[in-house]
């Protein structure tokens, strides 16, 4: 062994020693616990830390959210709040016409609902098309496939704040996009102060940030399609377009449905990167549901946690429907896989 390797082994051992020591110390009381309660007690012991944290920080909030939405006031402790029944929901749903946000009592909520609806439809459509195209290309016989796969995956790891700032920097007045526009003879423009372009930016940036994830799932699906089907089609002289519609797409369907539902679930909750990119603006044109909940719940001067909680439950209902849809889709995919 070289000196460096020896050093490395020894440092590793020195770092691990306290952990190993701690684990052996813990073993002593646990052994008597095991003797007293049997393996059933041990199962409880192993589950306890995780379930305690899980219970306090997931289950309890989930349950008290319903009580929350039935109270009013600006206090955060449940006992300091007044019970109002379904008033918060009535307030949220009080609308002359659901298509015209100006007629709603909580016009900001409905603005966020409309914005989110449009965002979800456009973003998921764009995401699906871009991911399928990329997955199909990556599935071809290209040189360096894993390199290219990594290229499209890179933005997935970036933090939403970093993503938002990078694109804010590119889209600002002295930014890269305006440099390109300028070089092509156009006039520089303040993209993020324009309603249409701010929305387009929000959609494109979120597609940019997450498409690599969906491409991976679709690529795994494409690679699971048996090669001999394509070879048979080639021997029959089938046209490539027909091969795509008759072989690739039907066999990719289970993965594609999972991708679409997952993308839907994520798009409904969109917040971080758009919040950093546009702050919900200009005006309220990129204000989405999660930002509405955050602002009504915490940030705004007229904060109303009960209203925020009612809004979050309505959003949760949509997500539950989508999740059930996903489970359904997943099961169908499994059954289909078993049949083939």
């Amino acid at each position: 062994m070289t000196a460096a390797a020896t050093l490395k082994t020894w440092t590793g051992a020195a770092l691990a020693a306290p952990v190993v020591w701690l684990a052996s110390i813990v073993n002593v009381p646990l052994k008597s616990w095991q003797r007293a309660t049997g393996t059933g007690g041990m199962a409880a012991f192993f589950l306890a830390p995780n379930m305690a944290i899980f219970g306090i920080f997931v289950l309890v909030p989930l349950v008290i959210n319903f009580f929350y939405s039935a109270t009013s006031g600006t206090a955060y402790f449940l006992q300091d709040r007044t019970y109002v029944g379904l008033e918060q929901y009535q307030r949220l749903l009080d609308c002359g016409s659901y298509l015209d946000t100006a007629t709603c009592r909580e016009d900001l909520f409905w603005k966020a609902v409309h914005n989110t609806g449009l965002f979800v439809v456009v973003q998921v459509a764009m995401m699906t098309i871009v991911s399928i195209a990329t997955a199909l290309i990556l599935n071809r016989e290209i040189v360096g496939r894993s390199f290219w796969r990594a290229v499209f995956f890179f933005p997935v790891l970036l933090s939403p704040v970093v993503t938002g700032l990078i694109w804010r920097w590119i889209l600002q007045r002295q930014g890269l996009l305006n440099l390109i526009v300028h070089d092509m003879g156009g006039e520089p423009y303040n993209w993020l102060t324009d309603r249409f372009w701010a929305f387009t930016a929000a959609v494109s940036v979120s597609v940019w940030a997450h498409m690599g994830f969906y491409t991976l799932i679709l690529l795994a699906g494409l690679q699971a399609i048996p090669r001999d089907l394509y070879e048979a089609a080639e021997m029959d002289g089938t046209k490539p377009a027909r091969v795509f519609w008759r072989i690739t797409l039907p066999l990719l369907m289970p993965n594609l449905l999972v991708v679409i539902v997952l993308a839907l679930i994520r798009a409904v909750q969109i917040f971080d990167e758009v919040y950093v990119l546009t702050g919900g603006g200009p005006g309220t044109s990129t204000l989405y549901l999660t930002q509405y909940i955050y602002e009504i719940g915490f940030a705004s001067l007229l904060r109303n946690p009960g209203l925020a909680s009612a809004a979050s439950i309505l959003m949760g209902l949509v997500l539950v429907v989508l999740t059930l849809l996903q489970l359904q889709v997943g099961r169908r995919g499994e059954r289909k896989g078993a049949r083939e």
């Binding site: 909030p61 989930l62 402790f77 997500l319």
Partner: peptide, 17 residues
């Protein structure tokens, strides 16, 4: 609860914490 996102329990989680 795999699919319970933070934004759905934001307010009550804040009060629990």
């Amino acid at each position: 609860t795999l699919m319970v996102p933070l934004s759905v329990i934001l307010v009550p989680l804040y009060s629990v914490v």
